[in-house]
Each structure stands twice: as C-alpha cells, then as structure tokens.
Design a binder for these strands. Sequence first.
DNA 1: TTCCATGTTCCGCA
DNA 2: TTGCGGAACATGGA
Length: 265
Amino acid sequence: MPELPDVAGFERYLASTSLHQSVRRTSVDDDRILRGLSPSQLGRRLKHVSIEATRRHGKFLFARLSGDGHLVMHFGMTGGLKYYRREDQRPRHARVVLHFERGYHLAYISQRLLGQVSHTEDPEGFIHDNDLGPDALDEGFDRPAFTQRLQGRRGPVKSRLMDQSLVAGIGNIWADEILFQCRIHPATPVEELSQGEIAGLFDCMRRVLRRGVEKGGEMDRLPPRFLLPHREGDGRCPGCGGDLERTTVGGRGTWFCPACQKEPG
DNA sequence: TTCCATGTTCCGCA
DNA sequence: TTGCGGAACATGGA
C-alpha cells in the first residue's frame, strides 16, 4: 500500500496518536528491518525519549525525537503503523514496537520485510545520501523544475515517474492513476513527450496525489472517475466504458485504457 | 503448486 | 562513465 498518499496517512496517524509520549522501552521482532543500527542501539536512542514532530519525504516518514535526531521509517510494499493498548491487539508482522510510559504501544508493521527502520541526525542529509528527488507534493517544486529534471532522461514515462531520484513518492499504483488522468500511455518514451504534455503530466501528478492524500490513500473513497477503483472492480474505463488492459512496463504490472491512452508512435 | 504483489538495490549491458 | 532493464530479496495470498 505505501506510496506517497498512504505514507501521508501514516504521518497523520503517527502525529495524532504518538506525539509527546515518553518511550519506556522498544522491542525489535526481526532485526533484518533495521538499517545501520542494532536493536540495542535503537533501544538506547529511544529510551525516555518522545516523538516531537513528524515529516514525510516521498515514501519516507521521519519522527523527530526529543533526544537526538530522527527515527526514519520506510514501509516497503506492505506495511503501516498501529497504535494500541492491549498486548492482544498487537498486529501480525509488527517488527518494531515502541512501548510508551502511559501504557500504549506503537507498532511498525512490515509483512515482507522490504521496509526499513533507521535513525538519522539530519533528514536533509538522509534525503541527499539516499539520492531522493524533491517530494512530489513539495510546495517549491514546480513545472519548470519538473521539466528540468526530466531533461535528458529516457525510457517509459511510467518508469521515470517511479524513479525516486527524479521525484520522490510515486509508486506502481499511483503512477498508473496519474498517467490515466493525463491520457498518456504508460509505455510512452519520456523523450517523445512535448513540453505541453510534460506540463500536463506535472499538473496531473499534483492533482491526483493531492486527492490521494485527502483520502488517506484509501482507494474505495476515490471519485468514480479514477482508474484505481476499477482495476480490481469492474475492469471498465471510467472515461469511455471500454475494457481496461493489463500489461507490463519496466517489469511492473500496469493498468491502462487502450482507447483513452494512445499507444506511442 | 505456481504466480503475483502498492519497493529498493544490485548487476550486467549498451 | 552513465543510465536503463531485469533479477533478487522475503513473505504470504489468490
């Protein structure tokens, strides 16, 4: 689930449940989820410390600590957060759990272990070191900046949209939605897009992701004119009513409307 | 049983 | 040297 809209939902969830609560202890269920620090190092970082603020960049979620630095979370292909009271409410695949002084718990969930939990002193440095482009919804990110970052790039537009070093936050699901709303075929080579199409793509990206964030990433709450509710549903294009098609672009399963999104060339 | 999955990284090739 | 495509990774559901 976790692309930009979902992680934005996790950020709100984290901020509404877990701020300003001192951590009594931390448990790590599977240390393969940790990057660059051991379970005991994480435990020391978090002991008697609270989360004071949250921040998201692309698919990464940062939690600023009252001690030093920030807790960093990435959710891989499956994952999320759950705040709970009783131990029998502990979710399956909880890999890291913060146990708060007042008796509540916050679980970081990652079924396939493709996510990561780490620590950084400096989110800006972390973003740079991980070669992340600007967040797709960053206020300061605009059409000219997007166009410039696309300059000289090649390959299917969908693959470039999912390239985190170009723009951070878009994954396989929302890339399909953006391209559908923009009426661009996902396999279109990015070097074949006109300036106007690139500008339109940027606008679609912002509009679609903002709507996704509003809905907290929940597909069934999206407007019916969106592609996402139809790909697992009736399989029909909400624009023309024709059958949606599934293909592979850049090795990833891709849904599109063959009538509305014209084949390149 | 086999295939597929909303992500990232690493390796080979152009 | 740089950038792109595909495989690998780990787990579980259809």
